[in-house]
């Protein structure tokens, strides 16, 4: 009776994929809400979307995708036995996350200065639907931002583990699962970008 003590690589990956399904369903509910709300207020969603800067949105997409490239390279570096390179690439991914959040922070600050938030000055007298767009925008990008933050925390832990040897060429599941998580965060953003920034 020792099968529990043995490490189960397939099991660990299956568990991670199931967890990612739950994340998709979490955002899925919000996408459903977005869809319903947009069908009810097509013009207002179109108009409210002008507040967002598509250029910044696209730039941030590039930042996230670059992070994905880094973390995927980190994994293959580790599998190839180059632990040091894996460690540096992981740090670069965390950096990408930080840049993404910083840009997002500037965007949100600008929106608040313009009074673009539910019950804010710019939206108080606006036709119904516009504040709804703003509400969904903060809700969905905010929740996504929390996921970016969680991904950064996860990868920071991995950075230490790559140093200490808890993540190593013959035991890379933690890095692989964290990378999967990072890709999830990316994929969700790829849907958020057109729904909010490119709706205008």
């Amino acid at each position: 009776m020792s099968e529990a003590a043995e490490f189960d690589y397939e099991g660990a990956k299956l568990g991670m994929w199931l967890f990612l399904f739950t994340e998709f369903m979490l955002f899925g509910a919000l996408f459903m809400l977005y869809g319903g709300s947009r069908v009810l207020n097509p013009e207002q969603f179109h108009a409210a979307s002008r507040e967002l800067d598509a250029g910044l949105g696209v730039a941030n997409t590039m930042v996230l995708l670059t992070g994905s490239l880094f973390i995927a390279s980190a994994l293959s570096a580790l599998q190839g036995g180059r632990r040091r390179a894996a460690r540096n690439l992981t740090a670069l991914t965390v950096l990408c996350g930080a840049v993404f959040l910083a840009v997002k922070g500037f965007e949100w600050a600008a929106h608040f200065r313009h009074g673009f938030y539910p019950n804010g000055p710019a939206l108080k007298g606006a036709p119904p639907g516009r504040a709804l767009f703003a509400g969904l925008y903060y809700l969905m990008t905010g929740l996504h931002g929390l996921h970016v933050l969680a991904g950064m925390a996860l990868l920071s832990v991995l950075w230490f583990w790559l140093g200490s040897g808890r993540a190593r060429p013959d035991h890379f599941i933690a890095l692989e699962n964290s990378a999967l998580y990072w890709h999830l965060v990316d994929i969700i953003w790829i849907f958020l970008l057109p729904l909010f920034y490119l709706a205008a």
């Binding site: 809400l33 709300s37 207002q44 036709p127 119904p128 639907g129 516009r130 504040a131 709804l132 509400g135």
Partner: peptide, 8 residues
């Protein structure tokens, strides 16, 4: 106002 008709 996600579920409030007055707000869309």
């Amino acid at each position: 106002g996600l579920f409030d008709p007055a707000k869309g």
